[in-house]
Amino acid sequence: NTIFEAAMKQCGVSIAYNIEELIDLMAAFTCPCLPKGNKLGILAESGGGAVAGADSAFEFGLDIPVLSKARQQELTDRLKGVIPPFSAPKNPIDLVWPPMENRVKILVDCAEILLKEVDSLIIMDYAVFNSDYVKGMQDLQNRVRKPVFLAPCFPAKRQAELAKLTLKGVPSFTIPERAVKAMATAVKYSQYVQSIK
């Protein structure tokens, strides 16, 4: 097993240890861009999801950097009067249930600010999966050329929407840990590709 894993690593092959991981990796690699480094941003509407994601990031070797003061201020300014003032704008970012009105724009704006200082982003939200949401996420990813994965809340009721987003190049996962693990594998593959250039 050690020899097999070493050989696969030397060739840049990603290993799935069970069928669930195989599906997750296939979803992750539908993304049109790879993370250039291991700095991960987490944008959540649920503090628990953010904690689960951060713990997994540590486990799989991803870094969750605290945002610079300038970026924290940018986020605070964007969210002023939109969400309660006790949210921490450091990373992970907890949006504390933003209003339904303009929700896609709020998520996209915050994501864009966060992506100025990280290589990839995982969003955990309660958004309504309409065409605006899909387009907003696609446009964001195409604009910043950094991968954005989703791990929406209430995934059991949203299998069809998750599949739709994944097919549009925005990989979506049922729980934060699976999104983080898949992102960590994408980072490893990206590092391999950079190392052979």
Binding site: C11, G12, V13, I15, I19, L22, V193
Partner: peptide, 26 residues
């Protein structure tokens, strides 16, 4: 066996330059 492994690794190296390759270790 060694020939098979060697051919496989060469193929994998060529492939991963272009696209991600996943091995399901089932």
């Amino acid at each position: 066996g060694l020939k098979y492994a060697s051919d496989f690794l060469e193929l994998a190296k060529r492939a991963t330059r272009k696209k991600p390759v996943i091995v399901w270790k089932g």
